[in-house]
């Protein structure tokens, strides 16, 4: 079974397969690409001075997939030669588990690096996904950005970080 480019679900993330899915994308001539950049986000054992025991991720999955499609489309506009694969995990994750896997593939490394960084910044801005942190002594929902995919300032900020 082929690996989809964009996905969200409870299964463990397989970065190699996700990166490999970009090689077999339709419409791409073999050999034109010179770079694959990957990012794996991990569950950390500390946050804001708290000792984290584990995380639970929840998502509005159909809208999260559409947000991923939007990010892929933004990348295709900003870096036309660069393609994105993006998988996010939901459910209970242990310390050290991967929560998000991103791969970008391009003829040149600069665009692959920039698009990869852009993708994770945009996930944090617009994907309807939430993490609940269980720490020594309690638990808390983490709340970051108010998701607004049309907000030009947020998109510009992600691009600024990606190209810094």
């Amino acid at each position: 079974m082929s690996t989809p480019l964009l996905a969200i679900g409870p299964g463990p993330l397989e970065l190699e397969r996700i990166a490999a899915s970009l090689a077999s994308s339709a419409g791409q001539a073999a050999g034109v690409d010179g770079a694959v950049v990957t990012f794996l986000g991990l569950v950390r054992d500390h946050n804001l001075g708290r000792r984290v025991r584990y995380l639970e991720y929840e998502a509005y999955e159909p809208l999260a997939l559409k947000a991923f499609e939007r990010i892929a489309s933004e990348i295709a506009t900003r870096w036309p030669d660069t393609r994105l694969a993006l998988h996010h995990r939901v459910g209970r994750l242990a310390i050290g588990d991967a929560s998000v896997a991103i791969a970008t593939r391009s003829p040149h490394r600069a665009n692959a690096y920039a698009a990869c960084r852009y993708a994770i910044e945009r996930v944090k801005q617009i994907a309807p996904i939430w993490k609940r942190e269980f720490f020594d002594g309690g638990d808390v929902w983490i709340e970051g950005a108010t998701a607004d995919p049309d907000a030009a300032d947020a998109r510009a900020e992600a691009e600024r970080i990606a190209c810094a």
């Binding site: 998502a59 999260a64 944090k124 950005a145 108010t146």
Partner: peptide
């Protein structure tokens, strides 16, 4: 209709 608090994926 869905109501979404500030997001924290990644």
């Amino acid at each position: 209709v869905a109501f979404l608090p500030p997001v924290s994926g990644g």
